[in-house]
Design a binder for these strands. Structure first.
Length: 371
DNA sequence: TAATCGTGGTC
DNA sequence: TGACCAAGATT
């Protein structure tokens, strides 16, 4: 058993399975038992929660989860929906590949898995968007299996408790961490999985962990000799590389009826599948006046539209995970007698009221709401 | 292996 | 204000 070594007078590293025993009493009292996915054993609802929570804060995902579940309460509802409907409900949540993958996964569950989430790790991971940790979480929650998860919370807790060194998010630690995760995971695993995530979210914080109230204080190598000492911070990642900056110009084409032209973005790449203002410029350098003249010609050809005041509105900033987009908006007017060119099959005019219900990137939604 | 893929909150 | 961070998966 883990405990205090009288000879050394300090805490010993955790033994296999020693976390769960200490975690459960704490979890009973302090866990986030109000979370909606804690009150269901429905494989669909549990899978959906896992997908939505990937790289996303619980508080952010909550509203999306409720709306999504209300509109698509079961596999078959999601499978029979259009991608547009799905992306509309995902709009603003980010990482839109999750929505596309989830849509596809729901179809596969209907066609290949008899309408039930697959019941083995290997088969579950065949679903797009379902990796090992997500698969394990669903199997443990929906089917009561003993499956270890390794999300950011579990990773951080295990890293500290076992006194590992370096960066807990480094891929090189994968094997070690999975082995530890499996060692610590009891059967059934559901409550333990939830508990370790709650500990990571409420106590074993990335910054300023609350070691003094941690139920693992006695076995955590990271908290040895706590009592006022500064807790070893988990290093946040490899050498920080500056986010490159890109410059973009969105074209705001509106007709006399107040309709706005939007085009669907290709499924690969940023904002895949979402409806967006046409991006007529996207480079690593600021557009020159020559650039802009060229773009104006392009606009005339593509849309038959005329530049409004010809003025570019001031640049705004949108931060992505791996670059910063500084973008401006170029208003243009589409005279009533002109039509958008037929070859623009990937785009069309939308009334503002309609556009509101589309899957839009966040900054585009803000622009349209400001009209 | 490392890059890609969003967004909003926090300090 | 810039950097970090959040229930990762995919290529």
């Amino acid at each position: 058993m883990a405990g205090t070594d009288p000879a050394l007078g300090r805490a010993m590293p955790a033994d296999s399975g020693s976390i769960a025993v200490r975690l459960f009493p704490w979890y009973t009292r302090n866990g986030r038992h109000h979370l909606p996915w804690r009150h269901t054993d429905d494989d669909y609802a549990l899978w959906l929660a896992e997908i939505m929570l990937q790289q996303t804060r619980v508080e952010t995902a909550l509203d999306y989860y409720r709306r999504f579940l209300e509109k698509f309460p079961a596999w078959k509802n999601l499978a029979s929906a259009s991608l547009d409907e799905v992306l509309a409900l995902w709009s603003g949540l980010g990482y839109y590949a999750r929505a596309r993958n989830a849509h596809m996964a729901s179809k596969l569950v209907i066609t290949d898995w008899n309408g039930l989430f697959p019941d083995t790790l290997e088969s579950a991971m065949l679903l797009p968007g379902v990796g090992r940790s997500t698969a394990a979480a669903v199997l443990a929650s929906a089917y009561g299996q003993s499956q270890a998860i390794l999300d950011a919370n579990a990773r951080r807790v295990l890293f500290r408790v076992h006194g590992l060194q370096g960066n807990p998010r480094a891929p090189a630690q994968e094997k070690t961490l999975w082995r530890l995760a499996e060692q610590e995971t009891p059967n059934p695993a559901h409550d333990y999985n939830q508990a370790i995530q709650d500990l990571g979210a409420l106590v074993c914080l990335s910054r300023r962990p609350k070691c003094t109230v941690c139920p693992l204080m006695g076995i955590c190598r990271g908290s040895q000799g706590t009592a006022g000492k500064i807790f070893p911070q988990v290093s946040s990642g490899p050498e920080k590389q500056r986010r490159p900056k890109r410059y973009g110009i969105f074209l705001l084409v509106m007709d006399g009826k107040g309709k706005v032209f939007l085009e669907r973005r290709p499924e690969q790449g940023v904002w895949g599948g979402l409806w967006c203002l046409p991006m007529i410029y996207e480079e690593a350098i600021l557009p020159t006046p020559e650039d802009l003249a060229e773009r104006a010609d392009l606009i005339a050809q593509r849309f038959g539209a005329v530049l409004g005041a010809g003025e570019i509105l001031s640049f705004r900033q949108h931060v992505f995970s791996h670059f910063i987009l500084e973008f401006a908006i170029l208003p243009a007017f589409l005279p009533a007698e002109l039509q958008v060119s037929d070859h623009l099959s990937h785009g069309r005019l939308w009334a503002l009221g309609e556009a509101r219900d589309l899957g839009l990137p966040s900054p585009i939604r803000r622009i349209l709401e400001g009209l």
